[in-house]
Structure formats: C-alpha cells, structure tokens
Design a protein around this nucleic acid. Structure first.
Lengths: 201, 201
DNA sequence: GTTGCTAGTTGACAATGGAAAGATTGATTC
DNA sequence: GAATCAATCTTTCCATTGTCAACTAGCAAC
C-alpha cells in the first residue's frame, strides 16, 4: 500500500479487508494473517488496534449495524403511509445485507463477535428502533390491536431468514426446475403477506 | 474410548463430538484435532472417514436435516386441521433447532458444509417437502388464493430467523428492561400472526 | 500362514493466533 | 532545533491447527 511506516487509517483498511475475506470464504475462512497481508501490513499489526481477531470481527459488526441503521432511517424518512414504509424498510434491510455480505455474516452471530461490546449494542439498537417505530406507525394506521413486539419479531426474523436462506432456496428451486425467484421479489411478496396478517384482527 | 484398536462406530462418535464442540464454541471454534481428542482417537483418524474437516461438518449437517425431517413428519401426522398442523410444525422446527444446536449451526451455512452433497440435498428436501405439504393443506382449507411458495418462504424464513436471532433478541429485551419472551412463546405468536395473513385474501 | 483390506497411528509440513520485545515515526515539550 | 514520549508497526517466537504420506494393528478369506 503506501510506502510509509505508518499506514494512515489501518483500522478501517483492516475492516474492509475483513469484510472482503469473510464475504469470500465465510467466517471460518477468515484469518487474521490473511487480512493483514491484504492490508499490506505485518501479521501482528491488527492486534494493536483490535486486540485479537474477535475484536476486529466485532468492529466489522459494529460498522455493519451502522450501515443498516442508516439505511433503515433513510428508508423510513418522508414516508407517511405505514404499509409503504414497512415495504421500504424490508427492501432496505435486504439491500444492505447484500451490499455488505461480509459485514452481515458477522453481525448477528454471537459466537463470532463480542455481544457485550457497547458500540455494537448501540448501533444494533439504533437499527432495531427504526423497525419498532415503523411497526408502531403501522399499528396506529392499520390495526390498534396489533402487538408491536410480536410483529417486529416476525418482520426481523423473516428478513434475516430470507437473507440467510437465499442461497439454500435458490439451490432448492434450481434442483426442482422451479423458477428461481430473486430475493428482491421475495422480500416484496413476503412483506405483503405479513402486512395482511398485521391488518386482520 | 474403548481400549481396542478399532473404535466400533467412529464416524458417529465424531459427529457427536463435532456437534458438541460447535454448540460450545461456534463453527469458528471447531477444530478437527479437538474432535478427534474428544472421541479418544488420533488426530488423523477422521480423515479416513470424512476426508477433510468440511466432509465431517457436512455429515453433521446431513444428520441435522434428518432429525428435522423426522420431527416435521411426526408433527404433521394425524393432524387434520391445517392451522394446528402449521403450529405444530413451527414448534417442532424450533424444538429441533434447540435440541441439536451444533447440528443446526452447520445445516444452513453453505460456507461451512458442502452444499452439493447429495445426501444433504436429499434430507434437506425431505424436510422442506413437509413444510410445503402443510402449507398446501392450509391453502385448501383456508384460502385457495394463497401462494404456497411465498407462504412457505415466509414460514421458513421466520422460523430460521427466530432461531438465529433468539440470543440477540434476548439481549435486546434484557438491556431495555422488557420481559424476555422465551422462544416457544414467540414461535406460537408469530405463527398465529402468519396464519392471519394466510387466511386474508 | 500369508495375503489383502479396513481402521488407526505417527510424524512431518506449512499456516495460524497470539505474546513479547524491538524498531520507526510523529507530536510535544523544553 | 533537540530531547523525549507515546503510538504505530515489525520481528521473532511458541503452541496449535489441517492435511499428507508412511507406517501398523487387527480381521477375514483362502
């Protein structure tokens, strides 16, 4: 990379390299030394910024949650209609997960990152709060009896499941000569189905 | 463990040890040598049965799908009412995932196992077919316009998401002085909400 | 018994994560 | 402008890992 002794912004370079590597090979394929190599730095350099490999992965998870929270905030903005707002949130969730696959793979796995990390919890809550707010709007506009907590659980679970099962579902469809539906279409259909459930009392 | 040179049923002992280890430390904490150690066997023994570490993990995934398919089949049996049948399937899914956490962690991650493995695809399909059948019954009894594919996608995504997010959701609830709802309750509520969506046209 | 097969072992190799200690740099202080 | 200092990065080392190749133990057939 640069020819100076000091890197400039090594932490961020290491996060990028980590996200790339995890996206390529999965969390089990991640290696601290390979990341250091890609950042053009000695294998022990990451330790000074992140402690151990878990620290680095946690930092990537924080960055991922930050991206997610931003995307959900942007999606919810200036959207008066609650149904439309939930649709947009669903799309934003899936888009973010696909735009940052390395980040996403690390975000929700407590065996990989450090779940007690404060920044992680903060950014995670920032994202989650957006979802809750959207569903509260939906309750106000659509069905006062809607249990927000249960609805949020369903939404988040469905979105997460959709992202994680994408590859598996494509494989299944392919093996059975069924049309392979892309994930953007699936999230729209699934959201629509969830909204009908939320609307009925 | 026995004092003879030949183990008896090493492959199955290795699968058990693997499931235990993955449940304890996650997929990234898994190590072939540690598994061999726990099975009381030399570090190179697993290779003769599973090739490499991915082969062993794939075999565990197959076993997991087999358990899941059995559980779903049992849950659907002798259940005429489609709603009740879906409820039972949801519960069975979550129960299986919790009864075999090590297996489950490996089952749906294509970066860990070998997705092209034939036995894996076979057992996976056996489980998936049960879900499809249940939802077809639901369509027949509840709403002829229900799109089975979309409904199945929602169900599976929600169940998977629920299992994977369980830890994270508990953490969030805990940090916000909200009551921590156990996963069995959540799956029931979420299933109910999905069924309302399926019933409305 | 000896031949051959399957199941395990032993030993080697490069690669890994992490700890310790040393080198380089930029900033601060005088 | 020189001396000091803390932050940043490198080098060296060690125990552990996955995989390969070569070896050995038990079992069955003939």
């Amino acid at each position: 990379m640069s020819d100076t002794y000091h890197h400039g912004d090594l932490p961020s370079a290491l996060r990028s390299a980590t996200a790339e590597l995890v996206a390529e090979r999965g969390p089990r394929g991640f290696s601290l030394r390979e990341v250091a190599r890609r950042a053009g730095v000695s294998h022990a350099a990451p330790a000074h910024h992140f402690g151990d490999s878990r620290g680095l992965l946690t930092s990537v998870a924080v960055e991922g949650f930050s991206h997610l929270a931003d995307a959900l905030t942007a999606a919810a903005e200036d959207c008066a209609d609650a149904r439309e707002r939930l649709r947009r949130c669903g799309e934003a969730y899936v888009e973010t997960a696909r735009a940052y696959p390395g980040h996403y793979a690390v975000m929700l796995d407590e065996s990989i990152h450090d779940p007690d990390n404060e920044a992680l919890q903060l950014e995670g809550m920032r994202a989650f709060a957006q979802l809750i707010a959207t569903i509260e709007t939906l309750r106000d506009q659509l069905n006062p009896e809607l249990d927000v907590d249960t609805a949020a659980t369903l939404c988040w679970s469905a979105m997460h499941g959709l992202v994680e099962l994408d590859a598996t579902m494509a494989t299944i469809a392919d093996r059975h000569d069924m049309p392979v539906v892309d994930i953007e279409t699936r999230i729209d259909r699934v959201t629509e189905l969830m909204i009908s459930g939320f609307a009925s009392r």
